[in-house]
Amino acid sequence: MVFLLVIAFVFWIGLDLFLGARKRRKNSSSMKSVPAAMEFFADGDDFFRSLLKDLDAAENTINMMFFIIRDDKTGNEFIDKLCEKASSGVSVNVLADFIGSKSIKRSTIKRMKECGVRFSYSKKASFPLLFTSLNERNHRKITVIDGRIGYMGGFNIGNEYAGKDPKFGYWRDYHLRLKGEVVHELQKQFFKDWSLENPDAKLADALFPPLTKGETTVKLHVTDGNNVEEVFCSLIDKATSTVYIGTPYYIPGSQLQKTILNAIHRGVSVKIILPIRADHPFVQEASYPYLTELIEAGCEIHQYMNGFFHAKVLLIDKEICDIGTANFDRRSFTINGEINCIFRDKEMLKQIKETIDRDIVQSELLDMKRLKNRTLKNRLIGPLARVLSPFL
C-alpha cells in the first residue's frame, strides 16, 4: 500500500510538472524598442543610495517588485522608507516573489499594510498545478517612481546585496536606472504582474505622465519561462570578434552551449565570468561539464574572487549588450519570469566593458588542472546536479 502511494505521488508530481512545462511553452514573450536614458550601477552602495534618494523624492506613486526582499537591516531600511512615503499620501505597491521573499515576517507585512503600503506576493502556491506553482518564480526586479524613473537589473533588497553579509562579502551586480519612454513599459509590466494577484487593480492616467523620449533606444525583453535562450543564441551568432558573459550560474543546456562553441570555432574570443563560490547547492557541479568542454575549445573562464558575482550580462563585439534578470541557466530559460534590456549606446557600452575588465582582473582563471583536482565527493555530486539542473 505504501509503495502504491509513493508511486501515485511521484506520478502526480511528474504530471503536474509536465503540464506546467507545456503551459509555459505556450507563453508569449515580448520585445519592444523604446527610447531611454540610462545610468549603470555595479556597486551595491551606489545602487541602494540612488534608489533610496529617488524613493525619498517620490510625490505620487512607488511601484516596486523584487524577487527577494529580506526582513533584515537593509530590507527594513527600505520598508521604513516605503512606510514613510505611504503615510505621507504616496501610493505604494510592493510585489515580492512568494518563495524568494518567504523570510519576510508576518509582523513586517502587517506593519507595511497598517501604514498604507499595498503588499502582495507574486506566484503563490496554488492548485491544481501545485508543484508547478511552487517551482515557477517571478524573477523580475522592477521599480517605477512617479511614472518617471525606473530601475531594473540583478540587485535584490537585503544585507548580502549591500555587501553586508560576511558569508558572501562584497556583492557584484549590474543594474540600470532608466528614464524616458521606457519607464512606461516598466510600469505596464509591473501592473501586468500586480494584476495577476490583484485583479481589481486599475491603471490610472497619472501613472503614465508625458516623458521626454531619451537619448538612446533600448529593447525590453519580457519572458515567462521561454525565449531567453533563443535571444542569447541569436546575439552570440552575430558575434565576429568578442563575447563576454557574466552570470552567477552557468547551466546552459545543449543549444546555447553549442552556439558558444560554434562562436569559438569561428575565431570569436569568448570570456565568461562566474563566482568562485556558489550561493546555491549543486550549481557549480552542474556547470563543470559545460565549463570543461568550453575550456578545451579555448574559452576563458574567470572566477570572481572579490566577493560574490551575481551580475547577468552579455556583451557582443563591444557593440550590443544585454543586462537584466536572466541567468545563463535552465531555470531562467524554461521556468522563471524575467526582464532584460538590450542596447547599443556607445558610452554605456564603454562603461560596461571597463567594469567587465575590472571584474576579470579581480578573478582567477579556471584551468583543467583545477577542474581535475576536484574532490571525489564533488565528482559524485556532479551527475545528480546535472539531473537537477532545470530546478537549481
Rank of each mutant, 00 (worst) to 15 (best):
Y151S: 06
L380A: 14
V243R: 06
L178Q: 02
E160Q: 14
E160K: 15
L315Q: 07
V218C: 01
F18I: 10
A57D: 14
A239R: 05
A8E: 10
C233K: 10
S234C: 07
Y304V: 01
V117W: 07
T108L: 13
C233A: 13
N156S: 14
I260C: 08
I62Q: 04
E136V: 07
N27P: 01
V6L: 10
K23W: 02
F155D: 07
E197N: 01
I356L: 11
E319I: 05
F3A: 11
R379Q: 15
M65F: 06
D46E: 15
A311H: 10
N135M: 13
V92F: 06
E136C: 02
G163K: 07
D45S: 07
N373C: 03
N198L: 03
A385F: 09
G246F: 01
Y290E: 05
A204V: 06
G20A: 09
H310T: 05
S120K: 02
L52V: 09
K346P: 15
Q351E: 15
R177V: 08
I145S: 02
H310R: 03
I342G: 07
L291W: 07
I301P: 06
P252N: 02
F40K: 08
T74V: 14
A297E: 13
S363D: 10
G169E: 09
G158R: 10
L178V: 15
V90T: 10
A204P: 04
K179P: 05
Q303M: 14
L256H: 09
L186T: 08
H175C: 12
E185V: 08
D56E: 15
L130D: 03
A385V: 10
L365N: 07
H184A: 03
K202D: 14
A125D: 03
E59I: 06
S234Q: 14
P248S: 11
R177N: 09
K202F: 10
D173Y: 00
F9E: 09
N227W: 05
